[in-house]
């Protein structure tokens, strides 16, 4: 447990150091940059609420990847599942008019099921044809991207305004998530994200099915021995993974986006992977690292204006953090070498 908490912390510190060196080489001031970055992320009420707003979809996408990992699957398809969820939920939001008490839950349920169904397709291909989910999820991302693009430039295109942007009409006001902190953009999606995190925790650590999926993810042979079905695990895992990503999509269009827009999620899906890995797939870890990554995104603008450091530096930083997380054997090697040196010293004396 301590190990699980220490490595990500070391990775973040090491990445900050490496990135600082790169900034120095580029002739930029890393201290000023980091200072403004921090201010921009957590320095004011508005900064914090922006960071939390960013963290909501990030956390849901991270859960999407983490669910896959629990079941032993590498789900790189959060992007696609997110768009499909957003499309289905968005259609409900745009074309139906219901009281908010019905409308909002309906969108979320439809979005979850649609994203989940897109995930089920991956599980089906794996169970039936042995198709590696790693490749199929990447492929299906693009299918979803182009499907969204088709719909927002064709059947669902906004015809009310004169502009020719690839976007749908606005969702009904009854479908909008309410602002929970007046004067900011922070919305009720935060509660949903917390609920999702709680569900993730309860499902995997408190229910028999979640337990069985974890066993299968860690040791398929043991699952087989205990009579658990790996195929069923794959279906449940991918449905939940897709569902969480679908929720992320819905939440975005019910809040900051207000409508379906071509490629609105950008790198959200892959950032989720990074967040889940940094958080070591634990509920608390994911919560912390999603806020950290969202803070990097949120603080980047301030860093750019006040420190004259391009905002894209934060992506460099995120990439390097991930490299250190994934290369944690590096620290083990270092540790082992030190220990060996220590033993040699002891032997010598």
């Amino acid at each position: 447990m301590t190990r699980g908490a220490i490595y990500p912390a070391i990775a973040v510190i090491a990445a900050l150091a490496v990135c600082a060196v790169i900034l120095l080489v580029m002739g930029l001031d890393p201290v000023l940059a980091y200072q403004k970055l921090f201010q921009g992320a957590f320095g004011s009420k508005n900064a914090i609420s922006e960071t939390l707003t960013h963290a909501i979809p990030l956390l849901l996408c991270a859960l999407s990847f983490a669910v896959g990992v629990q079941g032993g699957l590498i789900n790189l398809g959060a992007t696609g599942q997110l768009y499909i969820g957003a499309l289905a939920g968005g259609a409900v939001g745009i074309y139906l008019h219901l009281p908010p008490i019905l409308h909002i839950p309906l969108i979320l349920v439809v979005g979850f099921i649609a994203g989940g169904a897109y995930g089920l397709l991956i599980a089906f291909l794996k169970n039936r044809f042995g198709v590696s989910e790693l490749i199929s999820t990447i492929m299906m991302n693009y299918v979803a991207i182009y499907l969204l693009n088709y719909l927002v430039t064709g059947p669902m295109k906004d015809t009310s305004s004169a502009n020719n942007l690839p976007q749908s009409a606005l969702i009904a006001t009854t479908a909008k998530l309410s602002i929970i902190l007046p004067g900011t953009r922070l919305h009720a999606g935060l509660y949903l994200a917390i609920a999702a995190l709680l569900f993730y925790y309860l499902f995997f650590y408190k229910t028999p099915l979640g337990y069985q999926i974890r066993v299968g993810g860690l040791n398929p042979d043991a699952a087989h021995y205990a009579g658990f079905s790996i195929e069923k695990n794959n279906y449940v895992t991918m449905f939940l993974a897709g569902g969480f990503a679908g929720l992320a999509g819905c939440v975005q269009i019910m809040s900051v986006q207000s409508r379906l827009i071509h490629a609105f999620a950008k790198e959200l899906g892959f950032s989720g992977v990074a967040v889940a890995l940094l958080g070591n797939n634990t509920p608390l870890g994911i919560a912390i690292s999603s806020i950290l990554f969202a803070g990097l995104d949120g603080g980047a603008a301030k860093m750019q204006t006040l420190a004259k450091v391009p905002n894209a530096v934060v992506y460099m930083l995120q990439g390097i953090i991930l490299m250190f997380v994934v290369g944690q054997e590096m620290f083990n090697l270092f540790h082992r070498r030190q220990r060996r040196a220590g033993i040699k010293k002891e032997a010598a004396t």
Binding site: N219, D221, A222, H224, Y225, G227
Partner: peptide
């Protein structure tokens, strides 16, 4: 297997690391 286990069959397998336990848990 699930049903056979339900019939009161216990099994101590030959390779405990591979089958009978999940080391990380």
């Amino acid at each position: 297997t699930r049903e056979i286990l339900r019939h009161g069959v216990s099994h101590i397998p030959e390779d405990r690391h591979r089958m009978a336990m999940v080391g990380q848990l």
